[in-house]
């Protein structure tokens, strides 16, 4: 039973990581640094809450969440692809914009500086089951969980088995060569970033609808954990998904051991970040990142 409880909890935590990190893979493989996953998620969480609140339907919330993530992503694409702004600085600016913007419009829409009212979400009550079984049942009824799981093979297929994926990888490795072969590098990058915005927006949607409300800063660094997973998973969708599961398992471990005080929670919190630094320093080596990552065309 404790294993089921553990797995149910891992599943619940891993979904937003899978969504956001898959988006991160798409963006980084096209050569655009995915520092803004956090901002996409936060914006998506907020717009999903708005959609779900005003329409009274989580499905509208889901579409609004995608739209919010894509909107911020297009702003990033405008700055970095059209105006060739530095990707790192633009990414930081957009994260700040997401934090400030969601707070501002939280006051505007709900006259609160901390949270929205309760909004409809997905998932039933677990059909009378209790404990871990209820958590699992609720997850199974949540379409976002299935979307999150399916995203991994879909992004892998897109990246490795379609002409678009080939163009994405070309734009991220050798943009000049790609352009000389007629690949519209700018358009490919914009599409890849928009895809990242949509997926990370869905990740935020999952968080907001799972809590049935938006709370200020509710993504709490999950976008950066997703970025860590992208790097730790060496920019490959399946390895990245594995990294997400690993990080989610560590987090679950911490939650379940909270009473036991075996390891201070702060040390468990560090795991994704420390692993990523170690990976960057040793395992990954110099050549693993897309060659044109962070560079204007």
């Amino acid at each position: 039973m404790i294993v089921v409880a553990f797995l149910a909890q891992v599943l619940r935590i891993v979904v937003p990581y899978l969504l956001a990190a898959s988006g991160g893979v798409l963006s980084e493989r096209a050569g655009i640094v995915a520092l803004t996953l956090e901002g996409f998620m936060l914006t998506g969480a907020f717009t999903a809450t708005l959609g779900s609140y005003y329409a009274g339907s989580p499905w509208v919330g889901l579409l609004a969440g995608i739209a919010g993530g894509v909107a911020l992503a297009l702003l990033l694409a405008l700055a970095t692809v059209r105006y060739k702004a530095d990707q790192v600085v633009a990414g930081i600016a957009l994260n700040l914009l997401a934090i400030g913007g969601t707070r501002f419009f939280l006051r505007y829409a709900f006259d609160s500086s901390s949270n929205s009212p309760r909004v409809p979400g997905f998932g039933g009550d677990g059909g009378g089951a209790v404990g871990a079984a209820a958590t699992l049942a609720a997850s199974a009824q949540n379409p976002l969980v299935w979307i999150g799981i399916l995203t991994v093979p879909v992004v892998a297929w897109l990246l490795y088995r379609t002409p678009f994926g080939l163009r994405v990888r070309a734009a991220g490795e050798k943009p000049e060569a790609a352009r000389s072969l007629g690949v519209p590098v700018a358009r490919v990058r914009v599409l890849a970033v928009a895809g990242a915005g949509a997926l990370a927006g869905l990740a935020g949607t999952y968080l907001a609808l799972d809590q049935h409300q938006f709370t200020d800063g509710m993504t709490a660094g999950r976008g950066f954990i997703a970025l860590a997973a992208v790097i730790f998973g060496r920019w490959d969708p399946k390895r990245v998904a594995f990294a997400c599961v690993l990080f989610a398992a560590a987090e679950t471990f911490q939650i379940q051991l909270q009473g036991a005080q075996l390891i201070p929670s702060q040390f468990v919190e560090m795991i994704p970040y420390v692993l990523t630094i170690v990976a960057l320093a040793g395992v990954v080596g110099r050549s693993a990142a897309p060659a044109a990552l962070g560079k204007a065309e």
Partner: peptide, 13 residues
């Protein structure tokens, strides 16, 4: 906070 972000974005672009 929004304005600070806009300033950064506007300078960098």
């Amino acid at each position: 906070e929004v304005l600070q972000a806009v300033v950064i974005l506007a300078v960098v672009t």
